[in-house]
């Protein structure tokens, strides 16, 4: 199946990004396709490469980046939500790209299922 994933919360405060990450990794392991992962609301913080959690904790920014690189996943950060929160190309982790909300709608159109992770 072809999935698209929407993440509406940042790392750490909410579990949404952790759950989405685990869902995405599990879907890929089962041979499903991930059409796109779209980061909206505070979800845009998942792309901030300045994020530096303690070393004994998981680092969701690098986890997403690595998963994206290993599986060639389109990791898209909403531009309007990002600018509001100071997320720009200068702080964007490798593998993410900033684009418009149209990418979310298009993912909903193209994927068989859009799975939303939020609060």
């Amino acid at each position: 199946m072809k999935f698209a994933v929407l993440i509406n919360e940042g790392p750490f405060t909410h579990q949404a990004s952790d759950s989405a990450y685990r869902f995405t990794a599990a879907a890929l392991a089962k041979g499903h396709e991930i059409y796109r992962v779209f980061f909206y609301n505070d979800g845009v913080y998942n792309s901030n490469r300045l994020s530096e959690p303690q070393t004994d904790d998981r680092n969701l920014v690098s986890l997403w980046s690595r998963l994206g690189r290993d599986h060639d996943i389109d990791l898209v950060v909403c531009v309007a939500a990002a600018l509001r929160r100071g997320i720009k190309d200068e702080v964007l982790e490798n593998g993410f790209r900033i684009s418009g909300l149209g990418q979310l709608v298009e993912a909903g159109i193209q994927a068989d299922r859009l799975i939303v992770f939020g609060d």
């Binding site: 509406n8 909206y40 309007a80 909300l101 979310l104 709608v105 298009e106």
Partner: peptide, 15 residues
């Protein structure tokens, strides 16, 4: 959430 959802709807309407 309310404001950013409205922003999605206004973009979605273009499709």
């Amino acid at each position: 959430y309310a404001l950013e959802c409205l922003e999605v709807v206004l973009i979605a309407a273009a499709f």
